[in-house]
Simulated assay, not measured.
Amino acid sequence: MKKFSRKAGGVMLCLMTLLPFCASASGGITLNTTRVIYPQDAKQSSVSVRNTSEKGTFLVQSWVENKDGSKTKDFVITPPLYTSRPGSENILRVIYSGSELPRDRESLYFLNTKAIPSVDKAALEGKNTLILAAVTRIKLFVRPAGLKPSSDDAPSALRFKRAGEKLEIYNPTPYYLTVTNLKAGNKELKDIMVAPMASDSVPLPPGSRGDVYFSTVNDFGGVTPAQKGVMQ
């Protein structure tokens, strides 16, 4: 979690970046998904944003970052900025406007939604007040058509290899695969996302012996059943 603070005129604004794994929620603003699968040839995709607060009004701002975490103009979000009333629902339209992306694998971006609560300036006059603006950040995958294997079958293609104090994970598929509930024997390992047609590794704790088991996160943000890892 990253926090940024700015204080002016007795009011402190604190920005909190949240990396959600379950339902995306921050200060009464919720998204209807924890990830976006954007078909590469689609004209647009959409994300529902709800204000679950009974009284709170929020200023909602949205933008897209590239895989390095920098703001990008590859996507247009409409509306980029709007006021969300209590109990209301709005639709964000996500439109790709960048150059041609690879056709043999997914491309990774991040969709950010910042919710700033409204305040009564007159009521706050002369008071020191903390205002929290929360940013929900979810993965956005641009997926070409016709990729093989299917996204459902991709996790079983992962390959694992012990290399000293690390467990190497090779992903030969065209998808970004988030590996979770990873275990070596009875030792739990950290979660990791492995890029398409690439390798990455996680530290192995001392005494981690036995078979490797893992789950992955599917297109709907759910966790797949555990399966035994295939060792190289």
Rank of each mutant, 00 (worst) to 15 (best):
L111P: 03
N90W: 02
S48A: 14
G9P: 00
S46G: 02
G28C: 02
V36T: 06
L81P: 07
D104S: 01
K67E: 15
S26R: 00
D120F: 00
M16I: 14
T33G: 07
A25Q: 08
T57M: 12
G69S: 11
S107R: 08
F4L: 11
L108Y: 09
L15A: 09
Y109D: 05
I77S: 06
F4T: 12
D120Q: 03
G9C: 00
N112L: 06
V60P: 02
A25M: 13
T57R: 07
A8I: 09
L108C: 13
V76K: 13
N112T: 02
I91R: 15
S84V: 03
R85V: 08
R85I: 06
F21N: 11
S84R: 06
Y82I: 04
V47G: 03
S24K: 03
P117G: 07
V60I: 07
V49F: 05
N66G: 14
L101P: 09
A122N: 12
P79R: 04
V64K: 08
W63F: 14
A8K: 05
R35N: 10
Y82C: 08
L81A: 12
T33L: 04
L108A: 14
P117C: 07
R85M: 14
V47K: 05
N66S: 13
Y82L: 12
L81D: 10
A23Q: 12
K71H: 15
M16C: 09
L101H: 07
Y82S: 10
V36C: 03
I95A: 09
I91V: 15
R6H: 07
G28E: 01
G10A: 00
K114W: 06
F110Q: 05
R35P: 08
L31M: 00
T113L: 01
A42K: 08
S107F: 10
T17R: 02
S70H: 12
P20R: 05
Y82E: 06
E54H: 07
K55M: 15
S24G: 02
V94A: 08
G27H: 04
L92M: 12
I29W: 05
L111V: 04
S118I: 02
T30H: 09
L19T: 08
P39Y: 03
A123N: 06
F4A: 04
M12V: 10
S88V: 02
T83R: 13
C22I: 10
L18R: 13
T17H: 03
L59I: 12
S24E: 02
I77H: 11
N90Y: 11
P79F: 06
A42G: 04
Y109K: 04
N32P: 03
F4V: 09
G69F: 13
E54K: 05
A123G: 10
A42T: 04
L59C: 11
V94N: 05
P102E: 04
F58L: 07
P86V: 11
G28A: 01
P39Q: 01
S99N: 13
D104R: 05
S26C: 09
C14L: 07
M16H: 12
L81E: 13
I77E: 09
